[in-house]
Amino acid sequence: MFSKSSFEWLDFKWFTIEMLQSFDWQNSFWLYAIIGVPLLFVLKWLIFVKFRQKLEVAFPDTSLKSDFWTILRHIPKLFFSLFLIFILIALARPQKTSEQPPEQYTEGIDIMLVLDISESMQIEDLKPNRLESAKQVANNFIKGRLQDRIGIVVFAGDAFSLAPLTTDYELLYGYLEEIDFRMIQRGGTAIGSAIGVGTNRMRENEEVESKIMILLTDGESNAGTLDPNTAAKLAYGYGIKIYTIGVGKQGRVPYRNRFGQIQYIENSLDESGMREIAQITGGEFFRATDNKSLSSIFATIDKLERSEIKENKFTLTNDYYEIYLTWAFIFFIIWLGLKNTFLVSALED
C-alpha cells in the first residue's frame, strides 16, 4: 500500500515535479494523454461556437463591460480538468522500486581435518614446527568457511576423533589450540586407521552431497590395523574425497630433542602412497615444504571445495496510484458541487 498513515495523501509533495520524476511509470503512455485534456475543452468550445443557437440582442456598449464574476464560472472546468489529469496519472501507475539485500543461504559440505601428531611433526623445517604450522593454517582455513560442518581427527600410532562434524567454529578453534604431541602415547603413523575413523564420522550423514577429507602427514604408514588403500576405498564408497598433504622436506631436517638441542635427522615421506590414496577417492596430492606452500595448498583446497551459495534476490515495489485516484475523486466531488451553483452561468459566450 502507498502509506502507513491514512492522511499521507494530503501531503503537498505528491504535486511536486521532483516527486513525479522520481516515480517508475508502469503504464507511462497514459501520461501523454494529459496533453489532450485542455484540447478537449478547446474542441468543446469550437463545437459550441459553430452549432449554438444565436439570438441577436442589442445591448448598450456600457453593459458589455467584463466583470470579475464572469471569470469565476471557469472554476468548475478547472476542477474537472484536474479530475481528468489525476485519473490519467493513476492509470499510468506510479511506482517506486527498491532492490532488497539478497538473502543468502548455503548448501554446506562436510570436511574432516585429519592431522598427524606423531613425534616427527616436531621437526622445525616449518616454523615453529610442522604441527604448529599445520594448526595455524587449519585455523585460517576454518575461518574462511561458511556453514560447512567441520570435524577433526588426530593420529599417531592410533587415531581418534577429536571433534565431531560441527558448525560451531569457536569450538573447533579451541580443539585446535589443545592439539599436542602427547595426546597419543603410541608412536608411529597409522594413516589407514585415521582415514577409517574419519570415514566412520562422515558416513552418518547421507544427506550431504559433498564430503571431503584433508589428510596431513609427514611420514609413511607404519602402524594401525587398516591398510591405507583399503581405507581409501572404503571412504570412496561413502562418497568421500580425500586431499592428501605431505608435509616437510626430504632428507636431513632439523629436529629439537627433549633437551632442547637441535640435531639433524633423516626424514622420508611415502609420496607414492599418498598420491594413490588421493587418486582412489578422486582427490589430489599436495606437497608442502614450507609455511608458505602449506598455506597455499589450503587456499587451493578452499577454492576447489566451496559450498554452493544461493541467493534470493527480490525487489520491493510500492504503488502510489491510490493517492492520485483519491485526489481525482475529491476534484470530481468538488466539480459536482460547483456545477449547480451561481459559478455556472446559464448564458454562454
Rank of each mutant, 00 (worst) to 15 (best):
E8D: 07
L20T: 04
S28T: 14
I35Q: 05
G36F: 12
I47M: 08
V49A: 05
K50E: 10
K54Y: 02
L55P: 06
E56D: 13
T62D: 11
L64A: 09
H74P: 00
K77E: 05
S81K: 05
L82P: 04
F83K: 00
F86P: 02
I87P: 02
R93C: 09
E103K: 15
E107T: 13
M112G: 05
L113M: 14
L115W: 02
L115Y: 10
L115T: 01
D116S: 07
S118L: 05
S118E: 12
S120L: 06
K127A: 13
P128G: 13
P128E: 08
V137L: 12
A138Q: 05
N140I: 06
Q147R: 14
R149I: 10
G151M: 05
F155A: 13
A156C: 04
A156I: 11
D158T: 09
S161C: 09
L162F: 13
A163V: 03
P164Q: 13
T166Q: 11
Y169K: 00
L172I: 07
Y173T: 03
L176I: 14
I179D: 03
D180R: 12
A194R: 04
A194E: 07
N200H: 14
N205D: 15
V208F: 07
V208M: 04
S210Y: 12
K211H: 10
S221V: 07
T225R: 10
P228T: 02
A231V: 08
Y238S: 03
G239P: 04
K241C: 03
I245P: 03
V247R: 00
Q250P: 04
Q250V: 07
V253I: 14
P254Y: 04
Q261T: 15
S268M: 13
G273H: 07
G282Q: 06
G283Q: 03
E284A: 07
F285H: 07
A288E: 02
A288N: 02
S296G: 06
K303A: 11
S307L: 06
K313T: 05
T315G: 14
D319V: 04
Y320V: 08
Y321S: 10
E322Y: 13
I323Q: 08
L325I: 02
L336Q: 15
G337Q: 04
T341Y: 11
S345I: 01
L347T: 01
L347R: 03
